[in-house]
Every structure is written in C-alpha cells, then in structure tokens.
Simulated scan of single mutants.
Amino acid sequence: MGARYTVLAAHQPAYLPWCGFFSRLLEMEAYVALDHVQFSERGRQHRNQVRGPASGLPVRLTVPVRHSFGQSLTEVRTADQAWPRRHWRTLTQAYGRAPYWTLYADRLRAVYERPWTHLVDLNLSLTRLLLHALDLPARVVRSSELAPRSSGTGMLVDLCRLRGADTLLVGTGALGYLDGALLREHRIQVQVATYTHPPYGADLRGWAPNLSVLDLLMHEGPRARGVLAAGARTRVWEPSVEAVTL
C-alpha cells in the first residue's frame, strides 16, 4: 500500500505558486494536488505574479486556456503555444540579473521549451521543479488517481482516509467552508497554516507581497528554504470557537 502520512496537505495545483503554498510543505512527505476539482477561471490555477520594474507594479503571467463550464482541472487545455515564449521573455527581464538566475535558469527554460497541452501537467511540472529547488521533500500525489468521493469537506475527509491521515493542514481561506462537525465526527484535527513575508534579498526594488516563489529563489537561492521557515506558522483550529467569528 505504500507509506502513510499523519498530516494531509491538499491544494489545487497553481501556476508558479507563491511562498505561502510552499511554506506549508516544509515538513511534508507528500502534497496531494487536487486536480480532479473544478477549474476556476481567473485564479491562481493559471496565473500568478512576478517582480515588475523597480518603480512599477508586479507583472501578471497568465496561461491562456480552453475550457468549458464545470470542467475539472485535468480536462483544461492550454489555448496556444505562443505563451511559453512570452512568459520566458518576461521571466528573463524580471530575473536575468538576479543573483541566482544562472543557478535555476537552465532547468526552468527546459520547462518552457516543452509543448504543453494540459494546464495541470504544466503546473505540476513546475511545482516539482520548485520543490526540488527549495530542497523540500514532498512528492506530488494527484487526487484524480486517489479518486475520492463526495466534495467539499467530505472530499477532504475521504482523502484523509485514503492517505491514512488524522490531521488536515489548510490555509486560512479554507476556514470559511470547512464543516467542523463532519471533521469532528471523523476525528480529524485541523491545523491552519499562515505565512508572513519576511524581508529577503539585497535589492527590494520592485518587490511586493504574494509574488511567485520564483522571486524568492532568484534572490536567495539555497537560503530560500530558511526564509520560508521564518515566515511560516501553524495553529490548531477549534471550529466550535472560531465559527462565531468567521
């Protein structure tokens, strides 16, 4: 059956995820990519931000996609093959002079030189590259291969069962929809992960919060993992207490 893990970290695969996403995986052995859930247009599933000009705003990178309403992430296809050149040009302009560009550029370029037909395959390829660059041990497990039942909190409960987990690690955004009674019924504890950006890099011109973790890597290199750890916090969620304030 393979190894089982006490804590389940599950999240929709994003394009070039931000630091907070990776800060949740610092001590995780596996990350469950929720690729069977419905695609959300104009979200981080196919767009993210990188550093812009020193005096300007962050630059948004968006992967153009073709999709139908209700499609799962596994079904969403990229819309053309011109976007990789555009994105690579933007990344080169943003980080070509960054201290650690040469350390990661070849591996990153190899991703952008491949032809991609499905968004989720692109996202997970980049996520694996970034996990390795950050020296994080988490391996990627696709939820579509686990085939959980139900949706919402019920789906997360089922994933915990399938993975042998008794603890669910979530971000603060999940607290608005989690069914605390259902989680208590199945004796699943919830840990809430938060991330606060500590200052990093010698040059803060053009820096902004919530940029892709690429920004951290390009400016801190092998020290990036330590920066993630410095900004990461977790706490236990008590739904009977916190539900009043949500």
Rank of each mutant, 00 (worst) to 15 (best):
A14P: 00
A14C: 08
A14R: 02
L16S: 05
L16E: 06
W18A: 14
W18E: 11
W18P: 08
C19K: 13
C19A: 15
C19I: 08
G20I: 02
G20P: 11
F21W: 12
F21E: 09
F21L: 13
S23V: 00
S23E: 07
S23T: 03
S23Q: 10
R24V: 01
R24Q: 15
R24D: 08
L25Y: 02
L26I: 07
E27C: 01
E27L: 05
M28V: 02
E29L: 04
A30E: 15
A30I: 03
Y31R: 02
Y31F: 15
Y31P: 00
Y31S: 04
Y31G: 04
V32E: 00
V32A: 01
V32L: 00
A33K: 03
A33F: 06
L34V: 01
L34K: 00
D35R: 01
D35Y: 01
H36K: 03
V37T: 11
Q38G: 03
Q38Y: 01
Q38A: 04
Q38E: 15
Q38R: 12
F39D: 13
F39T: 05
F39V: 00
F39P: 00
S40C: 03
S40M: 10
E41P: 01
E41I: 01
E41T: 06
R42L: 09
R42K: 15
G43Y: 10
G43K: 12
R44T: 13
R44P: 07
Q45E: 14
Q45M: 15
Q45V: 00
H46I: 03
R47V: 05
N48P: 02
N48C: 07
Q49A: 08
Q49N: 10
Q49L: 14
V50A: 07
V50T: 04
R51T: 09
G52K: 10
G52S: 11
A54S: 13
A54R: 06
S55N: 14
S55V: 06
S55D: 15
S55L: 12
S55C: 09
S55F: 07
G56K: 08
G56D: 10
G56P: 05
G56M: 02
G56R: 05
L57P: 14
P58K: 03
V59K: 13
R60L: 13
R60N: 11
L61I: 07
L61G: 05
T62G: 07
T62F: 04
V63M: 07
V63F: 00
V63L: 08
V63N: 05
P64N: 10
P64K: 12
V65D: 10
R66Q: 12
R66I: 02
R66E: 11
R66V: 08
H67T: 08
S68V: 09
S68E: 15
S68G: 15
F69A: 14
G70L: 05
G70Q: 10
Q71F: 02
Q71C: 04
Q71R: 05
S72V: 03
S72N: 10
S72Q: 10
L73M: 13
T74I: 00
T74G: 00
E75M: 06
E75P: 09
V76C: 04
R77F: 02
R77N: 00
R77K: 13
T78E: 07
T78L: 12
A79C: 04
A79I: 01
A79Q: 06
A79K: 04
D80W: 12
Q81N: 10
Q81W: 12
Q81I: 01
A82M: 02
A82D: 11
W83P: 01
W83Q: 03
